[in-house]
Design a protein around this nucleic acid. Structure first.
Length: 792
DNA sequence: AGCACGCCGACT
DNA sequence: GTCGGCGTGCTC
């Protein structure tokens, strides 16, 4: 991982004809000649270098798995995100195609050591995992290796396996089957039924599991049938079917409003003219953006092109998926992190083979191997989850635009609350600006009321629910309508504090307070996973007055059931949605009105579309305002606007209540009026004054080390170097310790560079990436992040 | 990641 | 004079 350049290998004759750029190969690497997986990045007929070349051991693919486009994209990504090229190549492929490495220990001579005899256990080759062995065993092995008694063998396993299922079809002719039927015993009813089945379904191929399930045969019935020669059984490849939403009612395009039609036409035209233009589709919540997307995709398909649709991970729910499947059926492929590696691999291959022309997926789907792209759409473009937080630290929006250029196709960025960066570009005419200002149901935006908790809090019936909110909930329950309550968990958690001395219980490894978990009555660290029981007495002053502070969904749930004993409450947070499919199940329950109140964290703010929801309550609007991040206002505004949009989606009017301690803050004020445009104006002023994006570009450099001094020292050294490469116009912030300075016993220091145009900076950082590798061994890690999303 | 090499202190 | 631990460089 420490090198960032290609290595040259000789191609054995047997591979020379078909080895191509973009294939995966196995090669020997390093002094120990351990085998590793590599990618072919270039081919040449001659080599005049000074190195003794090794040979390619094996080729893993029959056709290139990385297209020319993927190779070019990886090059660009390497440069752009300060990443290692190998990581950029790997990110283009599904996990299953990444090799897994294994070592075995092979016996070539005699062993006498009793330790090792037990280790080998009469086998000549065993799995070798040095971590599981004692140092004396390792010593022995090392000696034997020197004496050529044992050998370490390196293996590269390709995990990309297609799923095989048993299939069968009739082997005999109808006449022969008829004859066979006559030879059966009288009471062989099941075999008779099977033969009848084969006679009526002659010539047809069946998947064994389908037939056994639907016609009540067993696998052994079919095995016997094969033995008797009635059928042939064989294995076929089968695509795994992740969501099992096959049987959806097909939907037809809806009639568009004038605004929708205008937006659609503008993009359609760009598709027809092969224009690599970027559109910003700014549409208020409920303005029918999804229908616009669907019709744009349809237009692309009609031109014989394909389409790529990105949605935030969290809103990739069956509800959304169903809409696409209903319109485009089997042409849709899904890429989603909840898929297993195998499922993901199958979807990837369907796309790669051209069996799917519409790809719907979360962030990494932007690398889908889709050909002949007609349009790329990014819904909720402001979502921070589009930025990957480890190497390569790409933003899906940037990749989308790169691919748009490559394919000469438009990119559509959609949002009710666009990121300031995108909105500013629309202002300047860099993006084409499309607006949907009206809701499709013709209703006004829901009425939003602020509850000033500084006053209301004193008379509140419970800690988290004001009288105003309680009254509103009561009204809706009486009308048999549904309520969504959001608890803003960002920057907030329940911690344990001693009321006597003020001691807060903190994680022993990290600099943050432990979070109280009621279900297990324990304290957990959300950064390193440390867990401990709740102490009976304060560790500092030994007082018994240890209480927990903060708000958790569990506590609010309890308060709700006390206030409204008959109401059915569904809770949705990380605890209740951890299991696969739990997310969908909860929403499904709520959709069927099996509950009256849905209580959740941020995850309920997006994508929900329940016609019977007429009240949305935000329990604590401000917690995300106080974060030391220049995007705090933007995030708060976006969140409040998104969640407000959940009310009154259909015929019924909806209203929204926001509880806040900062009713005068502009982010809250504009969110109340759902006035994105004025918020944008105000926030741009703030950014201009502070010299932040979109007025400046930012790059964050982080150093982490085992001691605070090491991390700080490195950052000051970098600062000292970097000033030599920067002009007067650039600004360096820091180095400063990160707001959570210590995580898992590592110390973090950071530095942020704000700049507009610094031609020399790029080179310095590329160089830093390489040189910093050397110090990794001493526990010093450097991370370079372009356009970081989190400054804390 | 893992091997070789060179340096240095401990021990024969 | 030799062995082994440890830091450093390099991998076609």
């Amino acid at each position: 991982m420490q090198t960032n350049h290609p290595f040259t290998y000789q191609i054995p004759e047997k591979f020379q004809d078909f080895l191509q750029i973009g294939m995966r190969v196995v090669v020997e690497f390093g002094n120990g000649n351990r085998k590793i997986q590599g990618f072919v990045t270039g081919l040449t007929d001659e080599y005049s270098g000074e190195h003794q070349l090794k040979s390619v051991i094996d080729v893993l693919d029959l056709n290139p798995v990385l297209s020319d486009e993927a190779m070019a994209m990886a090059d660009w990504l390497t440069q752009r995100t300060f990443a290692f090229k190998i990581r950029c190549l790997q990110v283009m492929l599904p996990n299953a195609m990444r090799a897994s490495y294994r070592k075995t220990l092979k016996l070539t001579g005699k062993i006498t050591d009793s330790d090792l005899i037990t280790l080998f256990d009469h086998q000549s080759e065993v799995e070798f995992n040095p971590r599981k062995l004692t140092s004396s065993q390792l010593n022995q092995i090392e000696k034997l290796r020197k004496a050529n008694q044992v050998e370490i063998v390196y293996h590269v396993d390709d995990r990309a396996k297609s799923k095989l299922v048993w299939a069968f079809k009739a082997q005999m002719t109808v006449e022969e089957l008829q004859t066979a039927k006559k030879t059966l015993r009288k009471n062989a009813a099941k075999r008779k039924r099977l033969l009848d089945f084969l006679i009526t379904n002659h010539e047809q191929e069946f998947v064994q599991s389908d037939v056994t399930r639907e016609n009540n045969f067993t696998a052994s019935d079919l095995k016997t049938a094969a033995q008797k020669g009635w059928i042939t059984r064989y294995q076929i490849e089968k695509y795994r079917n992740p969501y099992q939403i096959d049987k959806v009612q097909p939907s037809t395009p809806k009639k568009l409003t004038a605004e929708q039609a205008q937006a659609t036409n503008a993009v359609d035209q760009a598709i027809d003219e092969d224009q690599a233009a970027t559109f910003l589709l700014e549409g208020v919540t409920g303005s029918g953006k999804t229908e616009v997307y669907l019709q744009i995709i349809q237009h692309a398909l009609a031109q014989g092109k394909s389409a790529l649709m990105l949605v935030p991970e969290i809103s990739l729910t069956p509800q959304i998926v169903r809409q696409f499947k209903a319109r485009f059926g089997d042409q849709v492929a899904l890429l989603h992190s909840a898929l297993s590696d195998g499922e993901r691999y199958d979807e990837w291959r369907r796309i790669e083979k051209g069996d799917a022309q519409v790809v719907v997926g979360a962030r990494s789907a932007i690398f889908a191997p889709i050909k002949n792209l007609g349009v790329i759409i990014m819904d909720e473009e402001h979502e921070t989850s589009y930025k990957q937080e480890d190497m390569p630290r790409y933003h899906a929006r940037d990749v989308a635009q790169w691919r748009g250029q490559y394919h000469h196709c438009p990119v559509v960025l959609g949002s009710a609350t666009p990121s300031l960066e995108s909105r500013a570009r629309a202002q300047k005419g860099v993006y084409q600006w499309l607006r949907l200002t009206k809701r499709i149901n013709g209703k006004d935006l829901p009425h939003v009321q602020l509850v000033d908790m500084r006053q209301a809090g004193r008379y509140a019936p419970t800690t988290d629910i004001s009288q105003e909110l309680a009254t509103e909930i009561q009204k809706k329950l009486a009308l048999n309508e549904q309520v969504v309550l959001m608890l803003n968990r960002r920057g907030y958690s329940s911690f344990l504090m001693c009321r006597e001395c003020g001691e807060v219980i903190k994680c022993p490894n990290c600099d943050i307070s432990l979070t109280y978990h009621k279900d297990t009555n324990s304290l957990k660290c959300h950064y390193c996973g440390h867990e401990e029981p709740v102490p009976q007495v304060c560790p500092n002053c030994h007082s018994k007055a240890v209480r927990y502070f903060g708000t958790g969904t569990q506590r609010v749930e309890k308060e709700l059931t006390e206030l409204f004993p008959t109401a059915r409450v569904l809770r949705m947070d990380v605890d209740t949605t951890r299991r696969k499919g739990a997310h969908e199940r909860i929403l499904d329950e709520f959709g069927k009105h099996h509950a009256d109140i849905l209580l959740g964290t941020q995850m309920i703010a997006k994508g929900l579309d329940f016609p019977n929801v007429t009240l949305v309550g935000v329990l604590n609007a401000d917690t995300s305002l106080g974060l030391p991040d220049f995007r705090a206002s933007e995030r708060t505004f976006q969140l409040l606007t998104q969640v407000s949009g959940r009310a009154g989606r259909a015929e019924k009017e909806g209203n929204v209540l926001i509880q806040t301690y900062n009713p005068d803050h502009y982010a809250i004020q504009y969110a109340q009026r759902q006035d994105y445009e004025h918020f944008f104006g105000k926030e741009m002023q703030v950014r201009h004054q502070g010299g932040y994006p979109p007025y400046y570009y930012t790059i964050q450099i982080t150093a982490s080390a085992r001691t605070e001094a090491d991390a700080a020292q490195k950052m000051f050294q970098i600062r000292g170097e970097i000033v030599n490469y920067l002009s007067q116009n650039a600004v360096i912030l820091g180095p400063t310790p990160q707001s959570i300075m210590r995580i898992n016993n590592r110390y973090y220091y950071q530095l942020v560079i704000k700049y507009k145009n610094e031609p020399q900076l790029e080179n310095y950082l590329q160089n830093l990436l390489l040189t910093s590798q050397k110090e990794e061994r001493n526990g010093l890690q450097i991370v370079i992040d372009r356009d970081p999303m989190n400054f804390i």
